[in-house]
Amino acid sequence: MTAQRRDLKGWHHGIVLIVVVAMAGLPVAGGAATTERVVSDRYTGLAIRGFDPVAYFTEGQPTLGQLDFELSDEGVVWRFCNEGNRLSFAAHPEVYGPQFGGYDPVDVARGVAFAGNPQIWLISEKRLYLFGRAETRDAFAAAPATVLNDARKRWVQLQQQLAR
């Protein structure tokens, strides 16, 4: 083996090591960080993968927000479809933002912070809830009062464990 090939081979192993180390730090749950008080992408800072939280109420479906209509709140970036939605959220983030910071309320009720999926959602009592799995959404829909009672009790403690 020539010296040049030996050097190249060592460089190749270094790249593999870098890739393995980088992959070890990747977030779980579909690219969402699970150590934040509001589910957001650790690389972009986008909350709920860039979906407009107000559109769930106005459009009745998940709708991606636009770069032109952004708002930074609690260290995350929210995107909206239009200026009206951005203004509505700015005035009432507690109403339009996903409850429990976007974590699955069924898992929160169990004391676990599992990031919700913006495409698995439900509005209950005029509040938005995101779920990690369709099964947990269905369980929530069957007994929302019970789940919410347990989730609210556990959420305070769970928030303390999540990064600020």
Results as ranks from 00 to 15, higher is better:
Pro53Ile: 02
Phe51Thr: 01
Ala143Gly: 04
Ala143Ser: 14
Met1Val: 07
Ile120Glu: 01
Leu158Glu: 03
Asp7Ser: 10
Phe57Pro: 01
Gly25Cys: 08
Gly132Phe: 04
Leu26Pro: 02
Gly30Ile: 05
Val77Tyr: 03
Thr44Arg: 04
Tyr103Asn: 05
Leu162Ser: 06
Val106Arg: 04
Ala29Phe: 11
Thr58Gly: 02
Gln119Gly: 08
Arg86Glu: 08
Arg154Thr: 15
Gln159Ser: 09
Thr34Val: 11
Ala134Glu: 15
Tyr129Ile: 04
Lys153Gln: 13
Arg42Pro: 15
Gly25Pro: 00
Leu87Pro: 01
Asp104Met: 03
Ala115Phe: 00
Gln160Pro: 00
Arg79Asp: 01
Phe114Ala: 11
Leu87Thr: 15
His12Thr: 09
Tyr56Leu: 01
Phe51Lys: 00
Leu26Met: 12
Gly65Phe: 09
Pro118Asp: 04
Leu64Ser: 10
Leu8Pro: 01
Gly31Leu: 02
Phe80Tyr: 09
Ala145Gly: 06
Val112Gln: 15
Arg127Glu: 08
Tyr56Gln: 02
Trp11Asp: 07
Ser88Arg: 15
Gly45Ala: 10
Gln160Ala: 14
Arg152Ile: 03
Glu70Thr: 10
Gly84Gln: 13
Leu128Pro: 07
Asp73Lys: 09
Gln161Trp: 06
Val156Tyr: 07
Gly10Asn: 14
Leu148Tyr: 09
Arg154Trp: 09
Cys81Leu: 13
Asp107Gly: 05
Thr2Lys: 13
Leu130Val: 07
Gly84Arg: 14
Lys126Tyr: 11
Arg152Ala: 02
Val108Phe: 08
Ser72Tyr: 06
Phe140Pro: 02
Gln157Met: 08
Val19Gly: 00
Leu17Pro: 00
Gly132Leu: 01
Asn85Phe: 13
Val28Leu: 14
Leu26Ser: 08
Arg154Pro: 01
Leu130Gln: 07
Asp68Gly: 08
Ala24Arg: 11
Asn149Thr: 12
Arg110Phe: 03
Gly102Leu: 06
Leu67Met: 08
Thr58Tyr: 09
Gly30Asn: 09
Asn117Asp: 15
Val108Gln: 09
Ser40Tyr: 01
Phe57Leu: 07
Asp73Cys: 00
Glu83Asn: 12
Ala139Tyr: 08
Gly25Gln: 11
Leu67His: 10
Asn117Arg: 10
Val106Cys: 06
Arg164Tyr: 00
Gly14Gln: 06
Leu162Cys: 08
Ile123Arg: 14
Gly101Lys: 03
Asp104Thr: 03
Ala32Val: 04
Val54Pro: 12
Lys9Asp: 10
Leu67Asp: 14
Ile15Met: 11
Asp68Ser: 12
Phe51Gln: 01
Phe69Pro: 05
Phe69Arg: 00
Arg5Cys: 00
Gly102Gln: 08
Val156His: 11
Asn82Ile: 03
Ile15Asn: 06
Leu17Tyr: 11
Asp52Arg: 07
Trp11His: 07
Gly101Tyr: 05
Gly101Ser: 03
Lys9Arg: 10
Ala29Trp: 09
Gln4Met: 11
Val38Asp: 13
Val77Gln: 13
Ser88Leu: 15
Phe80Trp: 06
Asn82Ala: 12
Leu130Asn: 06
Trp78Asp: 01
Glu125Arg: 14
Met1Tyr: 05
Ile18Gly: 10
Met23Thr: 13
Phe80Val: 04
Val39Pro: 05
Gln4Asn: 07
